[in-house]
C-alpha cells in the first residue's frame, strides 16, 4: 500500500450534485502530486476530502496505513495552505505559526525552536512580531507555508495558493514551493487550474474533468501522450489546434489535406490535434495558413491564422522570423506529432 490511498472515493452533495466520481489514486511518500483541471471540476473537493473538510460519500481514504474516513481533520496530521491563506488576523506571525503546535500540547521551548527554524527556512524571521495585515502578499504566502511546515505534517495540501499573487511573484513562489518541498521531502498535493504551474511543480499530474481523473502521469508523459481530447486541449500553451477530419482505412482526410498510413484501425469521424510547436515551415507543406495576427514574445512568435474555414489556427515560429499579417505560410506537421481523437467520445485512437 502506498502512502496515501484513495479507493473509489465519491462525493455527492446533499442537493444531488456528484462532484467527484469513483476516484482511485495512490500517492507515494515524498511525491509531489498536482491536481489540475478547470474550475468546478472537483479537484478542490477531492483535496478537501483528504483534509477532512468535506465528508466522503463513498469510498475509502488511507493515509500512512490508517483509514482516515472518520478521523477528525484536527487529528489527521495534514496541513493545508488556502487560496486566501486564511492567516489568523488577530495573531502575530509567531502565534500564527505556533498555534497548531500549542494545540498539540508541545512545550514552549520546542515551539520556539520549531517556529524559529521554519521562519528561517522561509525568510520570515524579521516579521515574527507583525500582524498579517502588515505583510505583503508574498510574505503572507510564506507565513501560510510556514504554518504548514512548522507542524511537520504527514502531508501538505495546497489549494490554489498562488492565484492571489501577481504574475512575477507567482513564478518566484512556484519555484520556492518546489525547492522547499524537495528540501523538506513531505508528500504534497497541489491543486491548480493553471497548467503551467501544474507542469512545473508536479512529479505526477492528475488531470481532472467533471469529477473524473482523465489522465494520470508525469507532466511530460501527459504532454507527449494525451489520452483524451480534454487532456490534449488542457495541457500545453498555447492550446492544441483541433481540426475535424475523417479516418478511413488508415487514411486521414481533413478539409484540404490528407495523411496516410496512420497507425489506427478506427474508422469514422475524428478530431485531429496538432500542437502549435509541432509545426514547421516548409515549401509545399500540407497546411496553408493565412496569417491574421502575430504575437511576438521575443523568444518565439505565436502566429494565428486561417486555414480555409478554420479560424484561429496557431503556429509557434522561432522568434527570429519576421511574419506579417496577410502572409501565406506553408506548414508541415513534425513526424508523428499529431493526435487523433474519436470525435464522439474524445478518446485517443492513434
Amino acid at each position: 500500500m502506498s502512502f496515501l490511498d484513495l479507493k473509489n472515493v465519491t462525493k455527492i452533495y446533499p442537493n444531488g450534485t456528484k462532484a467527484v466520481h469513483e476516484t482511485s489514486l495512490s500517492i507515494n511518500e515524498g511525491e509531489f502530486m498536482v491536481f489540475v483541471g478547470p474550475s468546478g471540476c472537483g479537484k478542490s473537493t477531492l483535496l478537501r476530502m483528504v483534509a477532512g473538510l468535506e465528508d466522503i460519500t463513498e469510498g475509502d481514504i488511507n493515509l500512512d496505513g490508517q483509514l482516515i474516513n472518520e478521523v477528525d481533520p484536527s487529528e489527521r496530521d495534514v496541513a493545508m495552505v488556502f487560496q486566501n491563506y486564511a492567516l489568523y488576523p488577530h495573531m502575530n506571525v509567531y502565534n500564527n505559526l505556533a498555534y497548531g503546535l500549542k494545540n498539540r500540547g508541545i512545550d514552549k521551548e520546542t515551539i520556539e525552536q520549531k517556529v524559529n527554524d521554519a521562519a528561517k527556512l522561509l525568510q520570515i524571521s524579521d516579521f515574527l512580531q507583525r500582524k498579517p495585515s502588515m505583510l505583503s502578499g508574498g510574505q503572507r504566502q510564506r507565513v501560510a507555508m510556514g504554518r504548514a511546515i512548522v507542524r511537520n505534517p504527514k502531508i501538505f495540501l495546497f489549494d490554489e495558493p498562488l492565484s492571489n499573487l501577481d504574475a512575477k511573484l507567482r513564478i518566484q513562489m512556484r519555484l520556492e514551493i518546489k525547492k522547499l518541498q524537495q528540501k523538506v521531502g513531505v508528500t504534497s498535493i497541489f491543486v491548480t487550474h493553471d497548467q503551467v504551474e501544474a507542469m512545473t511543480l508536479a512529479d505526477r499530474l492528475a488531470v481532472i474533468n467533471d469529477g473524473i481523473i482523465e489522465q494520470l502521469g508525469t507532466p511530460i508523459e501527459i504532454y507527449n501522450n494525451p489520452k483524451s481530447l480534454f487532456v490534449a486541449g488542457f495541457i500545453g500553451s498555447p492550446q492544441m489546434n483541433f481540426l475535424d477530419a475523417n479516418l478511413n482505412n488508415k487514411t486521414l482526410s481533413a478539409e484540404n489535406f490528407e495523411i496516410k498510413n496512420i497507425e489506427s484501425d478506427y474508422n469514422g469521424e475524428v478530431t485531429l490535434g496538432i500542437r502549435p510547436e509541432h509545426l514547421i515551415e516548409t515549401e509545399n507543406g500540407l497546411i496553408n495558413l493565412k496569417v491574421e495576427l502575430v504575437e511576438q514574445l521575443g523568444s518565439d512568435n505565436l502566429v494565428y491564422g486561417q486555414i480555409k474555414n478554420i479560424k484561429d489556427f496557431c503556429y509557434r515560429s522561432p522568434g527570429n522570423q519576421t511574419i506579417k499579417k496577410g502572409d501565406n505560410l506553408s506548414l508541415n506537421i513534425e513526424e508523428n506529432k499529431y493526435y487523433i481523437f474519436d470525435k464522439s467520445t474524445g478518446k485517443r485512437v492513434n
Binding site: 473538510l53 481533520p73 493545508m80 488556502f82 486566501n84 486564511a86 489568523y88 488576523p89 498555534y99 494545540n103
Partner: peptide, 27 residues
Amino acid sequence: IPDELLESAKLDGANAWSFFIDFLVPL
C-alpha cells in the same frame, strides 16, 4: 468571518470551544 479561518483552525487542532475562545472572542 471567512470559512477558511475555521477550516484552517480545525486543521491546526482547534476544537469547537477553542475556536470560540481563540478566534471569535478576540476578533
